[in-house]
C-alpha cells in the first residue's frame, strides 16, 4: 500500500467572485522512500497539495491518506517534518535551541534531545554552529538549520515547500547535492515543491507536473536516473530527456 495516496482530491476556496479551484481531481500515490517533486507554475496548487498532506489545509473533496491515517491524524502523530520557503528560525533562539524547539514541544527527554541535536547538526554539516544565533549565519546555512529542525524528531516524512527558492544558484546546487545525501542517509520519504526544472529532475525519483486553473496533475514521470547522482549527471542525455518531458508537460498544461 502507498505511503501517501490521494484519490480524486478537490480543494475549492470560496472567494467573493467565483470559487477558486486550487486542486481538482488529483490522483497520486507516493511510496515509502520516494523523493517526489511537485513542479508547476505559480497558482498550480503544488504548495496547496503539500499543505493538504501536512493538514495545514483541508480538502473539500476526495480522499487523502498519509501512512494509512487521515492527514490530521498523521500530523497529530508527528508523522512529518516541514521545511518552509524561508528558514523561519526564531531569532531569539540559538541554532541549537531552534532545533530543540520541536523536541521541547513533543516532550523528548533532555539527554535524548542533545543527542538528536548533535546528530542532525552533523547531518546538515553545521556541527560547531549550534551556539550561533540565526543572524550570524548565511541564508544557505539558515535553511540547512531549518532542515535540521525538521529532521530533529525523526519523522518518516519530510515535506519541503520551495526550500531553496530564495537562494542563489551556487548555494542551491550545493544544497541539492546535500539533500540527496541526507535522503540516502536517513531513508526518509521526501515531498519537495519547486518551480525549477533542473532541481526537480536532479533530486526526484518521481516528478509530478502540475498546471493551474484548476490546479491539477498533467504528468507523472518516474525517473530512470540511478540513485547515485553526481552533479554532472545534469549533462547526460537521460537527464536532458526527462527535463524535456517536464517542460512539455508544463507547456501542455499552460495551453490547455
Amino acid at each position: 500500500m502507498s505511503f501517501i495516496s490521494a484519490q480524486n482530491l478537490d480543494l475549492t476556496f470560496p472567494t467573493k467572485d467565483a470559487p477558486v479551484h486550487a486542486l481538482k481531481g488529483v490522483n497520486l500515490n507516493i511510496d515509502r522512500g520516494d523523493f517526489v517533486s511537485f513542479i508547476g507554475p505559480s497558482g498550480c496548487g503544488k504548495t496547496t497539495l503539500l499543505r493538504c498532506i501536512a493538514a495545514l489545509e483541508t480538502p473539500t473533496g476526495g480522499s487523502l491518506r498519509v501512512n494509512g491515517m487521515t492527514p490530521d491524524e498523521a500530523r497529530r502523530s508527528r508523522a512529518y517534518g516541514y521545511v518552509f520557503q524561508a528558514a523561519g528560525l526564531y531569532p531569539w533562539r540559538t541554532i541549537e535551541k531552534n532545533i530543540r524547539l520541536p523536541l521541547e514541544i513533543m516532550g523528548f527527554e533532555k539527554a535524548r534531545m542533545q543527542k538528536r541535536i548533535d546528530e542532525v547538526l552533523e547531518l546538515v554539516e553545521l556541527s560547531g554552529f549550534g551556539k550561533k544565533y540565526p543572524w550570524q549565519l548565511s541564508g544557505g546555512m539558515q535553511q540547512r538549520a531549518s532542515i535540521a529542525r525538521a529532521l530533529a524528531f525523526d519523522a518518516d516524512l519530510l515535506l519541503m515547500d520551495e526550500p531553496f527558492g530564495a537562494l542563489d544558484e551556487i548555494v542551491r546546487d550545493r544544497l541539492n547535492e546535500e539533500m540527496l545525501r541526507i535522503w540516502a542517509e536517513t531513508q526518509k520519504t521526501i515531498v519537495f515543491v519547486t518551480h525549477s526544472i533542473p532541481e526537480a529532475v536532479y533530486l526526484s525519483t518521481k516528478i509530478v507536473v502540475m498546471s493551474p486553473r484548476p490546479g491539477r496533475i498533467t504528468d507523472i514521470i518516474e525517473s530512470p536516473l540511478p540513485k547515485e547522482r553526481p552533479l554532472d549527471i545534469r549533462d547526460s542525455p537521460e537527464f536532458i530527456e526527462i527535463a524535456h518531458r517536464v517542460r512539455d508537460g508544463l507547456r501542455a498544461g499552460h495551453e490547455a
Partner: peptide
C-alpha cells in the same frame, strides 16, 4: 503565518505556542 504554521505542524498546544512563540516575539 509561517511561524504560526510551524507550531501547527508540531501539533503544539495553545499554551506551547504562547510561551515559545507569541510571548518571546
Amino acid at each position: 503565518h509561517m511561524q504560526v504554521d510551524l507550531m501547527h505542524t508540531y501539533s503544539a498546544t495553545d499554551a506551547q505556542s504562547f510561551w515559545k512563540l507569541r510571548l518571546p516575539a
